[in-house]
Protein backbone atom coordinates (compact mmCIF):
# COMPACT_ATOMS: atom_id res chain seq x y z
CA UNK A 1 0.00 0.00 0.00
CA UNK A 2 1.31 3.47 -0.80
CA UNK A 3 1.48 6.13 1.90
CA UNK A 4 -1.48 7.82 0.22
CA UNK A 5 -3.58 4.65 0.39
CA UNK A 6 -2.61 4.10 4.01
CA UNK A 7 -3.70 7.63 4.85
CA UNK A 8 -7.02 7.10 3.05
CA UNK A 9 -7.62 3.84 4.91
CA UNK A 10 -6.69 5.56 8.21
CA UNK A 11 -9.12 8.40 7.60
CA UNK A 12 -11.81 5.97 6.53
CA UNK A 13 -11.40 4.06 9.79
CA UNK A 14 -11.81 7.28 11.75
CA UNK A 15 -14.86 8.22 9.70
CA UNK A 16 -16.38 4.82 10.58
CA UNK A 17 -15.82 5.67 14.25
CA UNK A 18 -13.15 3.02 14.80
CA UNK A 19 -10.47 3.55 17.44
CA UNK A 20 -6.84 3.73 16.41
CA UNK A 21 -4.71 1.46 18.62
CA UNK A 22 -0.98 1.59 19.47
CA UNK A 23 0.34 -0.85 16.83
CA UNK A 24 -1.80 0.56 14.00
CA UNK A 25 -0.49 2.63 11.09
CA UNK A 26 -0.98 6.36 11.65
CA UNK A 27 0.32 9.49 9.96
CA UNK A 28 3.38 10.94 11.62
CA UNK A 29 1.52 14.19 12.22
CA UNK A 30 -1.26 12.35 14.10
CA UNK A 31 1.31 10.67 16.33
CA UNK A 32 3.10 13.97 16.93
CA UNK A 33 -0.07 15.91 17.75
CA UNK A 34 -1.24 13.22 20.14
CA UNK A 35 2.08 13.04 21.97
CA UNK A 36 1.96 16.82 22.26
CA UNK A 37 -1.60 16.82 23.61
CA UNK A 38 -1.33 13.82 25.92
CA UNK A 39 2.02 14.82 27.44
CA UNK A 40 0.80 18.38 27.86
CA UNK A 41 -2.23 16.97 29.60
CA UNK A 42 -0.03 14.79 31.84
CA UNK A 43 2.17 17.77 32.71
CA UNK A 44 -0.95 19.76 33.60
CA UNK A 45 -1.94 17.10 36.12
CA UNK A 46 1.54 17.10 37.64
CA UNK A 47 1.93 20.88 37.84
CA UNK A 48 -1.71 21.04 38.93
CA UNK A 49 -0.75 19.21 42.13
CA UNK A 50 1.15 22.30 43.29
CA UNK A 51 -1.43 25.09 43.80
CA UNK A 52 -3.74 22.74 45.71
CA UNK A 53 -0.97 20.75 47.37
CA UNK A 54 0.13 23.94 49.09
CA UNK A 55 -3.16 24.02 51.04
CA UNK A 56 -3.27 20.43 52.32
CA UNK A 57 -1.48 21.41 55.53
CA UNK A 58 -3.94 24.29 56.05
CA UNK A 59 -7.26 22.59 55.32
CA UNK A 60 -9.69 23.71 58.05
CA UNK A 61 -11.31 20.36 58.93
CA UNK A 62 -10.09 16.79 59.01
CA UNK A 63 -12.56 15.83 56.29
CA UNK A 64 -11.39 18.65 53.99
CA UNK A 65 -7.80 17.69 54.60
CA UNK A 66 -8.41 14.08 53.64
CA UNK A 67 -10.43 14.93 50.52
CA UNK A 68 -7.90 17.52 49.34
CA UNK A 69 -4.97 15.16 49.78
CA UNK A 70 -6.94 12.46 47.97
CA UNK A 71 -7.65 14.90 45.14
CA UNK A 72 -4.00 15.85 44.76
CA UNK A 73 -3.12 12.18 44.83
CA UNK A 74 -5.69 11.53 42.07
CA UNK A 75 -3.99 14.17 39.96
CA UNK A 76 -0.67 12.37 40.35
CA UNK A 77 -2.44 9.18 39.28
CA UNK A 78 -3.91 10.88 36.21
CA UNK A 79 -0.48 12.20 35.29
CA UNK A 80 1.00 8.72 35.54
CA UNK A 81 -1.82 7.18 33.51
CA UNK A 82 -1.44 9.81 30.79
CA UNK A 83 2.35 9.44 30.60
CA UNK A 84 1.70 5.75 29.94
CA UNK A 85 -0.81 6.62 27.23
CA UNK A 86 1.81 8.83 25.55
CA UNK A 87 4.37 6.03 25.87
CA UNK A 88 2.17 3.87 23.64
CA UNK A 89 3.03 6.36 20.87
CA UNK A 90 6.78 6.00 21.38
CA UNK A 91 7.47 8.89 23.75
CA UNK A 92 9.46 8.10 26.91
CA UNK A 93 8.75 9.41 30.41
CA UNK A 94 12.30 10.79 30.66
CA UNK A 95 11.94 12.79 27.41
CA UNK A 96 8.56 14.14 28.41
CA UNK A 97 9.70 15.19 31.87
CA UNK A 98 12.80 16.76 30.40
CA UNK A 99 10.62 18.76 28.00
CA UNK A 100 8.55 19.99 30.96
CA UNK A 101 11.53 20.92 33.12
CA UNK A 102 13.36 22.74 30.34
CA UNK A 103 10.24 24.72 29.50
CA UNK A 104 9.83 23.19 26.02
CA UNK A 105 6.52 21.51 26.82
CA UNK A 106 3.44 23.41 27.83
CA UNK A 107 0.92 22.67 30.56
CA UNK A 108 -2.43 24.24 31.44
CA UNK A 109 -1.76 27.93 31.94
CA UNK A 110 -4.36 28.17 34.65
CA UNK A 111 -1.89 26.62 37.10
CA UNK A 112 0.37 29.63 36.66
CA UNK A 113 -2.05 31.62 38.78
CA UNK A 114 -1.54 31.62 42.56
CA UNK A 115 -3.86 29.97 45.07
CA UNK A 116 -4.12 32.66 47.73
CA UNK A 117 -6.87 31.59 50.13
CA UNK A 118 -8.68 28.47 51.23
CA UNK A 119 -11.71 29.43 49.11
CA UNK A 120 -9.52 28.88 46.05
CA UNK A 121 -9.76 25.14 46.77
CA UNK A 122 -13.49 25.28 46.20
CA UNK A 123 -13.23 27.54 43.18
CA UNK A 124 -10.49 25.45 41.54
CA UNK A 125 -12.52 22.30 42.14
CA UNK A 126 -15.66 23.69 40.61
CA UNK A 127 -14.34 25.85 37.79
CA UNK A 128 -10.95 24.40 36.85
CA UNK A 129 -12.05 20.79 37.18
CA UNK A 130 -15.38 21.69 35.63
CA UNK A 131 -13.66 23.19 32.58
CA UNK A 132 -11.30 20.22 32.39
CA UNK A 133 -14.28 17.86 32.43
CA UNK A 134 -15.86 19.60 29.39
CA UNK A 135 -12.65 19.17 27.47
CA UNK A 136 -12.12 15.62 28.65
CA UNK A 137 -15.68 14.51 27.99
CA UNK A 138 -15.03 15.49 24.38
CA UNK A 139 -11.65 13.73 24.36
CA UNK A 140 -13.28 10.56 25.72
CA UNK A 141 -14.67 10.21 22.17
CA UNK A 142 -11.29 10.79 20.59
CA UNK A 143 -10.06 8.46 17.88
CA UNK A 144 -6.95 7.25 19.72
CA UNK A 145 -7.98 4.28 21.91
CA UNK A 146 -5.59 4.66 24.87
CA UNK A 147 -6.26 8.40 25.20
CA UNK A 148 -9.99 7.93 24.92
CA UNK A 149 -10.04 5.22 27.59
CA UNK A 150 -7.81 7.30 29.88
CA UNK A 151 -10.31 10.15 29.59
CA UNK A 152 -13.27 7.98 30.55
CA UNK A 153 -11.47 6.89 33.68
CA UNK A 154 -10.12 10.32 34.58
CA UNK A 155 -13.48 12.06 34.04
CA UNK A 156 -15.14 9.85 36.64
CA UNK A 157 -12.70 11.05 39.29
CA UNK A 158 -12.79 14.66 38.11
CA UNK A 159 -16.54 14.62 38.53
CA UNK A 160 -16.02 13.97 42.25
CA UNK A 161 -13.50 16.79 42.45
CA UNK A 162 -15.94 19.16 40.84
CA UNK A 163 -18.70 18.14 43.25
CA UNK A 164 -16.42 18.69 46.23
CA UNK A 165 -15.49 22.11 44.87
CA UNK A 166 -19.13 23.09 44.29
CA UNK A 167 -20.08 21.96 47.76
CA UNK A 168 -17.45 24.27 49.22
CA UNK A 169 -18.32 27.27 47.07
CA UNK A 170 -22.00 26.88 47.93
CA UNK A 171 -21.19 26.64 51.65
CA UNK A 172 -18.95 29.72 51.65
CA UNK A 173 -21.32 31.75 49.48
CA UNK A 174 -23.95 31.17 52.18
CA UNK A 175 -21.46 31.34 55.04
CA UNK A 176 -20.11 34.03 57.36
CA UNK A 177 -19.25 37.48 55.93
CA UNK A 178 -15.50 36.64 55.77
CA UNK A 179 -16.29 33.36 54.00
CA UNK A 180 -18.52 35.19 51.50
CA UNK A 181 -15.83 37.77 50.84
CA UNK A 182 -13.23 35.05 50.44
CA UNK A 183 -15.23 33.08 47.91
CA UNK A 184 -16.14 36.19 45.90
CA UNK A 185 -12.47 37.16 45.80
CA UNK A 186 -11.62 33.66 44.60
CA UNK A 187 -14.16 33.96 41.78
CA UNK A 188 -12.77 37.37 40.82
CA UNK A 189 -9.32 35.91 40.40
CA UNK A 190 -10.17 32.53 38.76
CA UNK A 191 -13.02 33.36 36.33
CA UNK A 192 -10.94 34.72 33.46
CA UNK A 193 -8.01 32.28 33.76
CA UNK A 194 -10.56 29.45 33.63
CA UNK A 195 -12.16 30.79 30.43
CA UNK A 196 -8.65 30.90 28.98
CA UNK A 197 -8.23 27.20 29.72
CA UNK A 198 -10.15 26.40 26.54
CA UNK A 199 -7.32 27.83 24.48
CA UNK A 200 -7.08 30.56 21.86
CA UNK A 201 -9.96 31.77 19.72
CA UNK A 202 -10.82 29.33 16.94
CA UNK A 203 -9.38 31.81 14.43
CA UNK A 204 -6.02 31.53 16.26
CA UNK A 205 -6.02 27.79 16.84
CA UNK A 206 -3.90 26.41 14.02
CA UNK A 207 -4.16 22.71 14.97
CA UNK A 208 -7.92 22.56 15.45
CA UNK A 209 -9.16 21.81 11.94
CA UNK A 210 -6.89 18.83 11.38
CA UNK A 211 -7.49 17.50 14.89
CA UNK A 212 -11.22 17.61 14.25
CA UNK A 213 -10.85 15.82 10.91
CA UNK A 214 -8.83 13.07 12.59
CA UNK A 215 -11.37 12.69 15.32
CA UNK A 216 -9.04 13.82 18.09
CA UNK A 217 -11.21 16.79 18.91
CA UNK A 218 -14.89 16.91 18.10
CA UNK A 219 -15.58 20.49 19.20
CA UNK A 220 -13.70 23.75 18.81
CA UNK A 221 -12.20 25.80 21.65
CA UNK A 222 -14.89 28.45 21.37
CA UNK A 223 -17.70 25.91 21.33
CA UNK A 224 -16.44 24.30 24.52
CA UNK A 225 -15.87 27.68 26.16
CA UNK A 226 -19.44 28.75 25.36
CA UNK A 227 -20.84 25.50 26.74
CA UNK A 228 -18.89 26.07 29.96
CA UNK A 229 -20.13 29.64 30.39
CA UNK A 230 -23.72 28.60 29.74
CA UNK A 231 -23.46 25.85 32.29
CA UNK A 232 -21.62 27.76 35.01
CA UNK A 233 -22.61 31.43 34.92
CA UNK A 234 -26.25 30.98 36.00
CA UNK A 235 -25.29 28.70 38.92
CA UNK A 236 -22.70 31.14 40.25
CA UNK A 237 -25.16 34.02 39.99
CA UNK A 238 -27.85 32.03 41.71
CA UNK A 239 -25.56 31.83 44.74
CA UNK A 240 -25.35 35.61 44.83
CA UNK A 241 -21.83 35.67 43.48
CA UNK A 242 -20.83 38.36 41.02
CA UNK A 243 -19.00 37.25 37.89
CA UNK A 244 -16.20 39.75 37.20
CA UNK A 245 -17.35 40.55 33.66
CA UNK A 246 -19.56 43.66 33.27
CA UNK A 247 -20.34 42.71 29.68
CA UNK A 248 -21.68 39.26 30.53
CA UNK A 249 -25.34 38.95 29.47
CA UNK A 250 -27.90 36.41 28.43
CA UNK A 251 -28.79 36.42 24.76
CA UNK A 252 -32.27 35.06 24.24
CA UNK A 253 -32.00 34.59 20.49
CA UNK A 254 -29.05 32.21 20.74
CA UNK A 255 -29.86 30.97 24.27
CA UNK A 256 -26.24 31.76 25.20
CA UNK A 257 -24.54 33.65 27.98
CA UNK A 258 -22.31 36.08 26.07
CA UNK A 259 -19.11 37.08 27.81
CA UNK A 260 -16.92 40.11 27.33
CA UNK A 261 -13.64 39.86 25.45
CA UNK A 262 -10.90 37.75 27.00
CA UNK A 263 -7.63 39.61 27.57
CA UNK A 264 -5.69 37.77 24.87
CA UNK A 265 -2.50 39.67 25.64
CA UNK A 266 -2.55 38.21 29.12
CA UNK A 267 -3.39 34.79 27.65
CA UNK A 268 -0.34 34.76 25.37
CA UNK A 269 1.90 36.26 28.04
CA UNK A 270 1.09 33.43 30.46
CA UNK A 271 1.31 30.78 27.75
CA UNK A 272 4.75 32.07 26.84
CA UNK A 273 5.98 31.78 30.42
CA UNK A 274 5.38 35.22 31.88
CA UNK A 275 2.43 34.50 34.19
CA UNK A 276 2.32 35.22 37.92
CA UNK A 277 3.64 31.77 38.91
CA UNK A 278 5.30 30.19 35.85
CA UNK A 279 8.74 30.42 37.40
CA UNK A 280 7.67 29.13 40.83
CA UNK A 281 5.80 26.16 39.35
CA UNK A 282 8.70 25.04 37.18
CA UNK A 283 11.18 25.69 39.98
CA UNK A 284 9.13 23.47 42.30
CA UNK A 285 9.12 20.68 39.72
CA UNK A 286 12.86 21.08 39.06
CA UNK A 287 13.61 21.04 42.79
CA UNK A 288 11.62 17.84 43.26
CA UNK A 289 13.45 16.33 40.29
CA UNK A 290 16.93 17.43 41.39
CA UNK A 291 16.40 16.61 45.07
CA UNK A 292 15.19 13.19 44.00
CA UNK A 293 18.18 12.45 41.74
CA UNK A 294 20.09 10.56 44.44
CA UNK A 295 16.97 8.49 45.17
CA UNK A 296 16.56 7.43 41.54
CA UNK A 297 20.29 6.65 41.30
CA UNK A 298 20.01 4.46 44.41
CA UNK A 299 17.03 2.60 42.93
CA UNK A 300 18.95 1.93 39.72
CA UNK A 301 22.08 0.85 41.57
CA UNK A 302 20.03 -1.50 43.74
CA UNK A 303 18.22 -2.95 40.73
CA UNK A 304 21.51 -3.56 38.91
CA UNK A 305 23.05 -5.33 41.90
CA UNK A 306 20.14 -7.38 43.10
CA UNK A 307 17.71 -7.75 40.20
CA UNK A 308 17.08 -11.36 39.40
CA UNK A 309 17.83 -12.53 42.94
CA UNK A 310 14.13 -12.24 43.63
Amino acid sequence: MSEQEKLQEFEARIARGEKIEPGDWMPEEYRKQLIRMISQHAHSEIVGMLPEGAWITRAPTLRRKITLLAKVQDEGGHGQYLYHAAETLGATRAEMIDALLTGKAKYASVFNYPSLTWADMGMIGWLVDGAAIMNQTMLAHCSYGPYSRAMVRICTEETFHKKQGMEQVIKYARGTPPQKAMVQDALNRWWWPVLMMFGPHDSNSPNSAQLIRWGVKTKTNDELRQEFINKTAPDLQLLGLKIPDPALHYDEASDNWISGEIDWDEFWRVVKGDGPCNKERLAARRDAHENGAWVREALNAYAERFEGEG
Binding site: I56, L69, G76, A284, A288, N291
Partner: peptide, 17 residues
Protein backbone atom coordinates in the same frame (compact mmCIF):
# COMPACT_ATOMS: atom_id res chain seq x y z
CA UNK B 1 1.27 14.99 53.10
CA UNK B 2 3.89 17.71 52.55
CA UNK B 3 5.52 15.40 49.99
CA UNK B 4 2.49 15.44 47.66
CA UNK B 5 3.74 16.97 44.42
CA UNK B 6 7.37 17.01 45.58
CA UNK B 7 8.37 13.33 45.78
CA UNK B 8 11.46 11.98 43.97
CA UNK B 9 9.39 9.90 41.56
CA UNK B 10 5.79 10.26 40.43
CA UNK B 11 4.93 6.77 41.72
CA UNK B 12 5.81 7.99 45.22
CA UNK B 13 3.79 11.17 44.88
CA UNK B 14 0.97 8.66 44.68
CA UNK B 15 2.11 5.94 47.11
CA UNK B 16 3.37 8.18 49.89
CA UNK B 17 0.26 10.35 49.65
Amino acid sequence: SEWAGHAPILEEDIAFA
